[in-house]
Computed example of a mutant assay.
Amino acid sequence: MKDRKQAAIQRLARLEGQVRGVARMIEEDRYCIDILNQSLAIRSALSQVEILILQDHADDCVDNAILSQDPDVQRRKFKELVEVFEKVCR
């Protein structure tokens, strides 16, 4: 999990730079398609960060809920996952 956390932080730092770069591209009136391509790259990179966080959640929080053998805790964690997937599918 420590590795995923570090990877997420590194990706977010890169994303921060990409976002600043897109803002600069807009300020400089760069070609629209180039700006859109960079925006799509940012969206893809952010999705990868979300996957890392979701993997951590599954490996830690969900796993602990399963091991707890507490049906209420298990249902809560399962509901959280369903809600996240609902948001992704919108």
Rank of each mutant, 00 (worst) to 15 (best):
V49S: 04
L46H: 01
A65W: 06
Q74S: 11
V62D: 08
Q10C: 07
V19T: 07
E80Q: 06
I33F: 07
V62N: 05
Q10F: 08
D70L: 07
D70G: 09
S44T: 04
Q69W: 03
N37S: 13
A45C: 04
R11S: 13
D59L: 10
R90S: 04
Q48R: 12
D56F: 08
D59Q: 11
Q38W: 06
K87P: 04
K2G: 01
L40I: 00
I51D: 13
V84M: 04
A8Y: 14
A7V: 09
F85E: 07
Q55W: 11
Y31Q: 12
D3K: 10
N37Q: 14
D70Q: 11
L67H: 00
I35L: 11
E86K: 06
G21H: 07
S44W: 02
L12N: 02
E50R: 11
E50A: 14
M25V: 05
A45R: 00
V22P: 01
E16G: 03
R20W: 02
S39Y: 02
M1Y: 13
E28M: 08
Q48T: 08
A65E: 05
M1P: 14
R75F: 14
I9Q: 08
V19G: 11
L54W: 05
A13S: 09
Q74N: 07
G21C: 06
L46V: 10
A8S: 15
C61D: 10
H57C: 01
D56M: 15
K79M: 08
R75H: 14
C61E: 14
E50V: 06
R43L: 14
Q38Y: 02
E86N: 13
L54S: 05
D72A: 15
A58H: 03
R43F: 10
A8I: 10
A13N: 04
K77V: 12
D70C: 07
E28F: 04
R75N: 15
I9H: 03
C61M: 08
L40T: 00
N64I: 06
P71A: 13
D34A: 14
R43K: 15
E83G: 01
H57K: 01
N37C: 09
Q69V: 00
R90M: 05
A58W: 01
V88H: 00
F85P: 03
M1H: 11
V62H: 03
